[in-house]
Amino acid sequence: MNDSLLKRHITIYSEQLRSRRLWNIFIILIFAVSFFMSSSIIDFNLSQIIDGFPRLSDYIVKILPNLDINLILENSKTEGSIQYWYFNFKKYAALLYETFNMAVLATLMGFIFALILSFLSAKNITPNIYSYHLVKRILEFLRGVPEIIFAILFVWALGVGPLAGIIAITIHTTGALGKLFSEVHENADLKTCEAIRSHGGNWVSEMRYGIIPKVLPNIISYALLRFEINIRASTVIGFVGAGGIGQELYLVINFNYYEEVSAIILLIILTVITIDISSGRIRQKIIGEMGV
């Protein structure tokens, strides 16, 4: 390479470097401006956080159980034992079971609705462009409205209890999974669909045999992720009277039954961990063995 060519390369390179650097500075500026604008809108200030921090730890200390290491295994009458802390365990377990069932039902129903709608809202396989736009808008609405709003609505209409919560979570799950599923379909290879069409198969057959076997592993993992989310959602949704352990948690928080708050939260965390571990196993099993 001769000298003049080398020089030209160096000039071009440094010019590119300079423009890239300018661009980076520009982006950082935009971030800084939007950060300060949004923090002034929400009255964000550091001192408030620092002031509030001790109060936060106060609350955590308050809800911690008063366990005595010497009495820990004593019966429920003795203060300081685990049984005393969890004197209401049977009730919690029943409510947790109810919460779990709410999540199972809502996830299953949401899964079915989402699967049906997702075929209509995937651009590459939708039977026509109108149904594509229509279903896409419907899914946006279903997941755009927070589930707590739907829950308030259904508690008002159907009364206090888990049914309202199940319907609310089902609606939100349909919207969320429908979008994810249709995006999975959009990435699917259409070769098998072409084969089914060449046999004279109809649209339903194409979806059933051309798409479902191919996308199933992805769909299952999205559905299991959604199930974990729904466990938490069905807890929170109890706050507005839609059943499950959340309703009880709301009660003990309001009545300042501090030790019961930590007892319930610990149970919820343990449940979520258990589900997280087992859902990974379930997914592996389904993907490895099941041909649907």
């Binding site: 070769k191 098998t192 072409e194 084969a195 089914i196 046999h199 004279g200 198969g201 109809n202 057959s205 045999y209 051309g210 076997p213 191919k214 199933l216 041909g291 649907v292």
Partner: peptide, 19 residues
């Protein structure tokens, strides 16, 4: 253009979906 994740027999049977 077969359905990889399904068994041979189901693949062959899928030929009848048109008729």
């Amino acid at each position: 253009n077969l359905i990889d994740r399904l068994d041979v027999l189901t693949n062959v049977l899928s030929g009848t979906l048109g008729i």
